[in-house]
């Protein structure tokens, strides 16, 4: 008896040590995750001289809005911002129209051929034509340098489609469909009037995922757009901050030097304004996407 008790005490102590270790480790991890983001944010409010002296900043030094005042007057950035918003809105709308009805159809086990069709979709996750055939296709469709070139190639993410389909499979009870059928509702009616109103969770998740992808997209606009006026924020940001490409884009040496100097002053602010919107939104949608991803993953 006493021996057993001693064993339990020992066990409790080892558990306590383990718990303490885990908590310390996780706190450290949070610091590592957050500090780079926090650093950029405070650097964007600080005097560039202090930031460039390489101090380890914990809070803004000589806080000012100088950087942001310059950003406001830097018009390519605003053009990029507007382009990004435009592509994100159009892209998300197109993606929703393509993904959600299809995901519902594929979730219905009475739809003939759904396994085969699902396979055709899944196959593209592992094998694709690659960038050159896609580029040639875009040229051929005459959508090069238009919004459609940015939006259509990423019209469906198969992974999102699977998540969405699994959600419908496990959240729309079959009895509901049977009851609706008895009332004479057809598949269209059922989808638009019953399924969609029951699925704000998955619609929110899809909006978040597609909007994030489009907002952050860099390579597609770079490949499929030509006009610098049409470039989204990420491309503008890259051109400004990673000064390597500047001379290519501008061609004029003086202008390039001017831009490089400006980039040094502005980069923190620009990174902040480009990353902040999503970072502010996602915590509110966390429960949605966690639910969406878990449901999708279990079945997908």
């Amino acid at each position: 008896m006493a021996k057993e008790l001693a064993h339990h005490i020992k066990q409790d102590r080892s558990s306590a040590i383990f718990n303490a270790f885990v908590i310390c480790f996780l706190l450290l991890l949070c610091l590592v995750i957050l500090y780079p983001l926090w650093y950029v944010l405070i650097a964007s409010f600080s005097d560039p001289m202090y930031v460039n002296s390489g101090r380890f900043l914990l809070y803004p030094i000589h806080a000012s809005l100088d950087g942001y005042q310059k950003i406001i007057s830097y018009s390519p950035l605003w053009m990029g911002y507007l382009n990004t918003i435009y592509y994100t809105v159009v892209g998300t709308a197109v993606a929703l129209v393509l993904t959600i009805p299809a995901a519902y159809a594929l979730s219905r086990d009475d739809m003939p051929g759904r396994r085969g069709i699902m396979f055709l979709f899944s196959f593209t996750m592992f094998f694709s034509g690659g960038i050159i055939p896609m580029f040639l296709l875009i040229k051929q469709l005459k959508i090069y340098d238009t919004v459609w070139a940015v939006v259509l190639p990423v019209g469906i993410s198969v992974w999102n489609l699977i998540v969405c389909r699994s959600f419908f499979e496990s959240n729309i009870p079959k009895e509901l469909l049977e009851a609706a059928r008895l009332d004479g509702t057809n598949d269209f009616g059922f989808f638009f009037r019953i399924v969609l109103p029951l699925s704000p969770t998955i619609i929110t998740v899809m909006i978040l995922f597609y909007a994030t992808a489009q907002w952050n997209s860099f390579m597609n606009p770079l490949m499929y757009l030509q006009d610098i006026k049409k470039m989204p924020l990420q491309v503008i940001l890259r051109n400004l901050v990673l000064a390597a490409q500047i001379s290519n884009m501008v061609g004029d040496a003086n202008e390039a030097a001017e831009l490089a100097k400006m980039a040094e002053q502005l980069k923190y602010g620009i990174i902040t304004v480009s990353a902040l919107p999503l970072l502010l939104i996602y915590p509110f949608l966390q429960n949605y996407f966690v639910k969406g991803v878990s449901v999708g993953a279990v079945k997908g």
């Binding site: 952050n216 997209s217 860099f218 890259r238 990174i271 480009s274 970072l279 996602y282 915590p283 966390q286």
Partner: peptide
Amino acid sequence: QTISYAPYFVSTVVIVSI
């Protein structure tokens, strides 16, 4: 958990810039 998701919403361009 909430904190751990944050970097997922940051773009590659921003990450490389940082």
